[in-house]
């Protein structure tokens, strides 16, 4: 029963309570860059979920079996970012070959997934402690965390894209056009997601 509670806690936590964009401020650059159209937002979201999932797994393994045993945890930053850069390069090549239309649609934002704080962010978070169990994240918990955080990112991205598409037809004061109104929209979304704070389905183990 504890396992299911753990899984739900991580999933709901990553998607709603600690949403990467709306609570943790991770992944903002592409958030404001790609969210103008619903179609490109979907493609970007899915690419990010994929990269986050694989990045979480790879970096967890490297951390657990190489960095910690050899006491070089301070190399986390540089090793993780290199792994992520390599992964994005692979995804780019795969997309170019198997789905050229998506590749075109994402354009420059695809290589920019490398510098997406969300990907490196989730990799670093997974080296820490699961607040539900009180233990360091296991491999499956990291993978779940990676996937669900990506889903949360995509959720915020889709919501934003939907709103911005509608905003195109509104009369916005000149100074607020473009980014400022997007920020205000994001702020209102963050405000509503703040309502999830304090959500605790199960009391944590040993609490």
């Amino acid at each position: 029963m504890n396992n299911i509670a753990n899984i739900i806690s991580i999933s709901i936590g990553a998607v709603f309570i600690n949403n990467f964009i709306l609570s943790k401020f991770l992944g903002l650059c592409p958030f404001f860059g790609v969210s103008k159209k619903l179609s490109s937002a979907t493609g970007m979201g899915m690419a990010v979920v994929f990269v986050m999932a694989i990045a979480s797994s790879f970096t967890w393994v490297i951390n657990r079996f190489i960095l910690i045993p050899y006491d070089v945890a301070y190399l986390q930053t540089i090793i993780f970012i290199l792994v992520i850069a390599a992964l994005v390069q692979l995804v780019e090549m795969a997309l170019q070959k198997y789905s050229p239309s998506l590749y075109e649609a994402l354009g420059i934002y695809l290589p920019l997934i490398t510098t997406n704080c969300a990907v490196l962010g989730v990799a670093l978070i997974n080296t820490g402690v699961n607040t539900f169990t009180g233990e360091p994240y296991t491999f499956f918990e990291s993978l779940l965390n990676g996937v669900m955080s990506g889903v949360g990112f995509m959720l915020a991205l889709l919501l934003m894209a939907g709103l911005r598409e509608k905003l195109e037809f509104s009369n916005i004061p000149k100074g607020l056009e473009g980014l400022p109104i997007a920020f205000i929209t994001a702020g209102l979304m963050a405000l509503s997601f703040l309502g999830f704070a304090g959500l605790n389905f199960f009391s944590p183990v040993g609490g």
Partner: peptide, 8 residues
């Protein structure tokens, strides 16, 4: 160490 809201 006690479990608070967002961690120990």
């Amino acid at each position: 160490s006690s479990r608070g809201y967002a961690g120990d």
